[in-house]
Simulated assay, not measured.
Amino acid sequence: MAKTEVRTCFNCSEHIPPETEHFIIDGDPYCKECVEVREYTACQYYLDGEFMGDSENDDRVDHIQDYDDEYEEEKLYKCIKEFSIDMYDSDENLIENEQKVILIGSTWERQDYSSMSDVRLQSELGWLEVADETLDTHFVEI
C-alpha cells in the first residue's frame, strides 16, 4: 500500500490543504505565508529573504492559484466489520471458488478509479472493489 502523504510546506511544515494557493520551488511545495512576493513588472519570489526566482523566464518557481490546484488528499478507510469477497486475477477475471477475508482493522486506500464496482480500495494485501453500501457499512474513513 502506498504511504499516505499529506502535502506540507517544505519550509514551515504546515499542512497545505487542497484548493489552496501555494508555490512550488525546485519541485517542493511552500505555503504562501513562507514565500515573500515582491511585485515589479512581474513578480519576484523570496524564501526567508533569499531570492528564489521570478514570474518571467524562471522554471524554478510555479505560483499555483487556488482555482488551479488539483491536489487531492488520499482517503484511508479501516475495516470495522469482517466480510469475504470473491477473488480476481490481475486481468480482473473471477477466480472460481476462491475468496478473501477482509479482516477488522485492516487499512485500505481509496483509488481514483474503479472498473468493476463503485469503489476500489488498495492495501498491502492487494486491491478490492466494493459497492458504496459495503463501504458505508464495513469501513470508516480515517
Rank of each mutant, 00 (worst) to 15 (best):
S117L: 10
D118H: 14
R7Q: 12
L135E: 10
K100S: 13
G126M: 03
T8V: 15
S84Y: 04
K3H: 04
E33A: 14
E21M: 08
R60N: 15
T137G: 02
D86S: 12
W108K: 03
M87D: 10
C31P: 00
T20S: 15
Y71N: 08
Q65W: 10
L125A: 14
E74G: 04
E73A: 10
A2T: 08
M116W: 00
E82Y: 02
Y40C: 01
Y77M: 01
G49I: 02
D68L: 09
M116I: 12
Y77W: 07
Q65Y: 11
E50R: 08
I16T: 09
D68I: 00
E124W: 04
Y88L: 10
P29E: 06
S114C: 12
Y45N: 01
E33Q: 09
C43L: 13
G27R: 12
L125T: 10
D28H: 13
P18R: 04
S90E: 09
E124F: 09
L103A: 02
D69G: 03
D62V: 13
D132V: 10
V61P: 06
Q44R: 11
T20I: 02
W127C: 15
T4W: 09
G53N: 10
H15P: 00
H15A: 07
K81S: 12
I24N: 10
N97T: 04
S114P: 03
E56H: 06
L128T: 09
D68Y: 11
E74I: 03
I80F: 00
D118V: 09
V130E: 02
E141G: 05
I142D: 06
E92Q: 03
I24H: 06
I104R: 06
E141Q: 15
Q122M: 11
V61D: 05
Y67M: 05
M87F: 02
G49D: 07
N97Y: 13
D28M: 15
N57H: 03
Q99N: 13
E21W: 05
D66L: 07
I85V: 15
C9E: 08
T20E: 08
F23G: 04
G27T: 14
R60I: 05
Q44D: 11
E124L: 07
N11T: 02
I142L: 11
E5K: 08
E73Y: 06
M52D: 04
Q99C: 08
T41Y: 12
A42K: 14
F51Q: 02
D48Y: 08
G27M: 13
L76C: 12
E39A: 08
E19Y: 04
Y30G: 11
W127L: 10
R38V: 15
Q122I: 09
Y30V: 01
K81G: 00
W127V: 13
I64C: 06
C12S: 06
V35Q: 07
G53W: 11
D54W: 00
S106N: 06
D28R: 15
Q99M: 13
K32N: 15
R110F: 11
D62A: 14
D58I: 05
E129M: 09
V37N: 00
T41I: 15
Q111I: 01
P18A: 13
S115C: 09
E19W: 00
Y40Q: 06
M1E: 02
Y67F: 14
I16S: 01
V119R: 08
E36V: 01
C43M: 03
P29W: 06
I85Y: 09
K3F: 05
D118C: 14
H22G: 11
C79W: 02
S90Q: 11
N11H: 13
V6M: 13
S90C: 09
E72T: 08
Y71T: 04
N93A: 01
E70F: 02
Q111E: 14
